[in-house]
């Protein structure tokens, strides 16, 4: 990611906003609200909820500006607030039995994926594997990946989204989630493994349904 000019960094905006500078706050909101929204909408598939959580996130942010200890870790802080708001909302909805229980089948899925996990978690580097969709056109590959991500369970999707939608590093994800870096790395490998398996299954299913050429 390109380095931002000194006057355009979140830290500068934060300092201004904490002094009540509306322009700094606006810059911060404009820079980050699309990322927060995208993270939540991809996580939930619910645009209205995503906007609600986005607003709640920035309300929390503005209320805690004074207490923010600037150490260049704004992104993890912001996305942690967003994920906490999302969890709060999920718990509330669960209590009200209004569906949207995104983690209902997590335990079952986790056991289903256990075998996959043992195959794909290779911290020494299993990166040379070809992606199952390598033969497809690029646009089609992107669509397949997007569809496969949507099939992941919440925990796996969370890691993938924080990295590829929120743009956090694994260290920042660990900070956002309050988990050890090693745990988050393992979760990342597991999520990618599941994704790879989903894409493989998808390709195999397509191959079976395609009419054989004479």
């Amino acid at each position: 990611m390109a380095e931002q000019p000194a006057e355009q960094t979140p830290q500068v905006w934060l300092a201004g906003a904490s002094r009540g500078d509306a322009q700094s706050w606006q810059s911060l909101v404009e820079a980050y609200s699309p990322r927060v929204y995208a993270l939540i909408v991809r996580q939930t598939g619910d645009p209205e909820l995503a906007e609600e959580i986005t607003q709640a996130t920035f309300v929390s942010l503005v209320e805690n500006l004074k207490g923010y200890d600037e150490s260049g870790r704004f992104d993890p802080w912001l996305f942690r607030i967003a994920m906490n708001r999302l969890r709060d909302e999920m718990r509330r909805r669960k209590r009200q039995a209004r569906t949207m229980d995104m983690s209902a089948d997590n335990s079952q899925e986790d056991s289903e994926w256990a075998g996959v996990q043992t195959r794909v978690v290779d911290l020494t580097g299993s990166r040379a594997q070809p992606t199952p969709i390598d033969g497809l056109a690029h646009k089609e590959q992107v669509e397949k990946v997007r569809a496969a991500v949507a099939k992941l369970n919440e925990a796996d999707r969370e890691i993938i989204m924080l990295r590829h939608t929120a743009g956090l590093s694994f260290a920042e994800i660990a900070e956002s989630l309050g988990q050890p870096l090693g745990t988050v790395l393992a979760r990342g490998h597991r999520a990618l493994g599941k994704l790879r398996k989903l894409l493989q299954d998808e390709m195999e299913a397509n191959t079976k349904t395609e009419p054989k050429k004479a």
């Binding site: 609200s33 699309p34 990322r35 929204y37 995208a38 993270l39 909408v41 991809r42 645009p47 906007e51 986005t54 911290l123 020494t124 580097g125 299993s126 990166r127 594997q129 070809p130 992606t131 969709i133 390598d134 590959q141 992107v142 669509e143 990946v145 997007r146 991500v149 993938i160 989204m161 990295r163 590829h164 939608t165 590093s169 694994f170 260290a171 870096l181 790395l185 990342g188 990618l192 994704l195 790879r196």
Partner: peptide
Amino acid sequence: DGWTPDDSLEPLLDEALDASSLPGGVPAGL
């Protein structure tokens, strides 16, 4: 961080999941 990037899958994920690639985009006036 100790992460070995998946050079075949992760660039596709970046493209598929980037905030700017949201189907329908970010709502106007957000």
